[in-house]
Design a protein around this nucleic acid. Sequence first.
RNA 1: GCUGCCAUCGUCUAGCGGUUUAGGACAUCGCCCUCUCAAGGCGGAGAUCACGGGUUCAAAUCCCGUUGGCAGCGCCA
Length: 495
Amino acid sequence: MSNIRVRFAPSPTGDLHIGGVRTALFNWLFARNKGGEFILRIEDTDEARSTEESVKVILDAMKWLELKWGEGPGNECLKYAPYYQMKRKEQGIYQKYADELVIKRLAYHCYCTPEEVDEMRKEAQANKLPPKYDGRCSHLTSEQKKQKETDGRKAVIRFKMPDLGITVLNDLIRRRVEFDNSLLDDFVIMKASGVPTYNFACVVDDYLMEITHVLRGDDHISNTPRQMHIYNALGWKMPEFAHMAMILGHDGARLSKRHGHTSVLEYRKEGYLQEALINYLALLGWSTEDSQQIFTIEELEQKFSIERCGTSPSIFDPVKLLWLNGEKIRSKAPEQVYELFIDWLKYTNNEKLIENWDIDLLKKAIVLEHDKIKLLKDIPSLVDFFFAKDIEYKEEAVQKTLLSEKSKDSAKFVLTESVVRLANQQDFSSAALEQYARALAAEKNIKTGQVFHPIRVAISGRTQGPSLFHMMEVMGKNEVVRRINVTINKFFKTV
RNA sequence: GCUGCCAUCGUCUAGCGGUUUAGGACAUCGCCCUCUCAAGGCGGAGAUCACGGGUUCAAAUCCCGUUGGCAGCGCCA
């Protein structure tokens, strides 16, 4: 029994992105591996950009990915709830600790306007110094404060950072990282609106929720010393920190819209399997000693460890993800692929696509095309010809296989001959059909391809497709004969 | 600009001082299988381990510097 507690704390300002999923995944895997708790907390303190809709989207995405949270929205634990920071703010949780810091003189009210602070930073930067708040409000007398307030100024609360010394972070992934305190300025912990800022809310909640390990992207690493000082100021025990390397786009820049899909939902719409995405993302920044590539979720849970997380950033490769998705689909029973496909149709509102399709036939078609499926969205185009009332002939197939000078005579012969013979074929199994086709070729002394190819085009309209005789068996005698007849009438009718 | 992080095939990575002519996977190329397309099997090409200095009998592996990439520097998270 372990008491490890980790959390994923997204801000609901948009869809759940690939980078966010990776963070959530590694936290989840760590918790699963250690038998700990995985907590979902919504950091909605960005009043301007947070939306209900985004919360919903994130929760949906987490559910689809099957990254189940033991605590969080919809799964409240009385001791730690609520899991939305704005709700916690309403309960005065952050204000209480901010006030405590002010009383201890470890934080102070600041009346500077954003414009004034901006000015300060620009000036510092002009002098080649790190942009810092100069701390001018930390020495305000009560008269001065009163004056500012009567002037209608609203105060923020700033946390006092030490000017000297270094802060040492012992990161689980990066080992020892040092920060020079003189470079860090007094940062805002409570906005003028009374809402806490990220660095403060995060610490308060991680402490209150008894988070033991903070596993996050290394874009947060420079926030860490600030947070560490808050822990110290409040006399709280710090969690362990582990900063993962970022996931980048193909050009080495931070993953963004330019690199294609960034939202997980888009991957879902494309017909990726959640386990493919999970498997692929696990490979970015983590590996096993034997460099294993394909994992089941259970294997991932078993083998994951923070110690084996890498330190260098990785580039997201959609091609490898696609391969992995095909691999996952191939590893499933066709029946499961069918179920997944139905779910996908529902999710993408494409159910009408198959409304006239025979389900039994669809299942058989999926069996035949199974290892060709890379994305669930590929399925319709792979099997739709089975269900078409009118064959959709591919121009190229017709020209090449039926009408070219080289093949038209034998094609015509094979089809007219087959339409008769197949109608009388009582055993319509693939084996028997193959036997028939080969016999016909031998009998007329033509190549087997000259028999196979025209029949394929005649019944499917394409040159590519499932193995011919299996396809015929699945289609059934009547339909095969009907289609060949249609083809003869269309292309070989003697006027 | 300042600070931090990072640096092995095109990409993801193994490697944690000698077992390495640097291993695996994706992609790529060729061959085999074959009724097409896939899948699969086999094989090829692909990395002077960013560069330059050390330390050591011995370095991709340890140290320093350089360069490059990325990140952070908000009353955003």
